[in-house]
Amino acid sequence: PVYLSVKADNSMFIGNDPVTDETMITALNALTEGKKDTTIFFRADKTVDYETLMKVMDTLHQAGYLKIGLVG
């Protein structure tokens, strides 16, 4: 499974590897070998604001990742 996490300080990680807004999709493409039907499990600290969550989800959708599971 692929886990994308947003921490309380808005830092992002794919698994244990830090990513930025600019590198997130490139890292996901490498990890999933470009398979856009891969489910991305998205988790965020409860203090992360809604705007940040939606920005990340919008970026995922624009890149073609449509299977996003929200996890606690």
Rank of each mutant, 00 (worst) to 15 (best):
P1D: 07
P1Q: 09
P1M: 09
Y3P: 01
Y3F: 11
Y3S: 04
L4V: 12
L4P: 00
L4K: 00
L4F: 09
S5V: 15
S5F: 15
S5P: 01
V6T: 02
A8E: 09
A8S: 12
A8Y: 09
D9L: 05
D9Q: 06
D9F: 07
D9H: 08
D9V: 06
N10S: 11
S11Q: 12
S11R: 13
S11A: 08
S11H: 08
S11I: 10
S11D: 05
S11L: 11
S11W: 05
S11G: 05
M12V: 09
F13C: 08
F13T: 07
F13L: 07
F13S: 05
F13P: 00
F13I: 04
I14H: 01
G15S: 03
G15Y: 04
N16A: 11
N16S: 11
D17Q: 14
D17A: 11
D17M: 15
D17K: 13
P18C: 07
P18R: 13
P18S: 08
V19P: 01
V19E: 02
T20G: 04
T20F: 05
T20Y: 05
T20C: 04
T20K: 04
D21M: 15
D21P: 15
D21L: 15
E22M: 09
E22R: 08
E22D: 11
E22K: 11
T23K: 05
T23Q: 08
T23P: 01
M24V: 08
M24K: 00
M24F: 12
I25E: 03
T26I: 10
T26N: 11
T26D: 14
T26G: 12
T26R: 09
T26P: 13
A27N: 06
L28P: 00
L28I: 12
L28S: 00
N29R: 06
N29V: 08
A30D: 08
A30G: 06
A30T: 10
L31Q: 06
T32N: 03
T32S: 04
E33N: 14
E33D: 13
E33Q: 14
E33H: 14
E33C: 11
G34D: 05
G34A: 04
K35W: 07
K35L: 06
K35Q: 09
K35Y: 09
K36A: 05
K36E: 04
K36T: 10
K36L: 10
K36I: 05
D37S: 08
D37K: 05
D37Y: 06
T38L: 08
T38S: 06
T38Y: 07
T38M: 09
T38G: 04
T38I: 13
T38W: 05
T39S: 06
T39Y: 14
T39L: 14
T39N: 07
T39M: 15
T39H: 12
I40V: 06
I40T: 00
F41M: 11
F42M: 15
F42P: 00
F42Y: 03
F42E: 00
R43Y: 15
R43S: 14
R43W: 15
R43H: 14
R43I: 15
D45F: 04
D45K: 02
D45S: 06
D45P: 05
D45M: 03
K46P: 15
K46A: 13
K46D: 12
K46S: 12
K46H: 12
T47L: 12
T47P: 05
T47N: 14
V48Q: 03
V48I: 09
V48H: 03
D49K: 14
D49S: 15
Y50N: 10
Y50I: 13
Y50G: 08
E51G: 11
E51A: 13
E51Q: 13
T52K: 10
T52Q: 09
L53I: 15
L53V: 14
L53W: 08
L53F: 10
L53H: 03
M54Y: 09
M54S: 09
M54F: 09
M54H: 09
K55P: 02
K55G: 05
K55H: 10
K55R: 13
V56D: 00
V56E: 00
V56R: 05
V56G: 01
M57R: 07
M57Q: 04
M57C: 08
D58Y: 13
D58V: 12
D58C: 11
T59Q: 12
T59L: 15
L60W: 01
L60K: 00
L60H: 00
H61W: 11
Q62H: 09
Q62V: 06
Q62D: 10
A63H: 09
A63N: 10
A63W: 05
A63T: 02
G64W: 01
G64C: 04
G64E: 02
G64H: 02
G64I: 01
Y65F: 09
Y65E: 00
L66H: 14
L66E: 08
L66N: 11
L66D: 09
L66W: 15
K67R: 12
I68G: 03
I68W: 04
I68C: 04
G69N: 15
G69I: 15
L70W: 14
L70S: 06
L70I: 13
L70V: 10
L70Q: 06
L70E: 05
L70P: 05
V71H: 08
V71N: 08
V71I: 14
V71C: 14
G72L: 12
G72W: 06
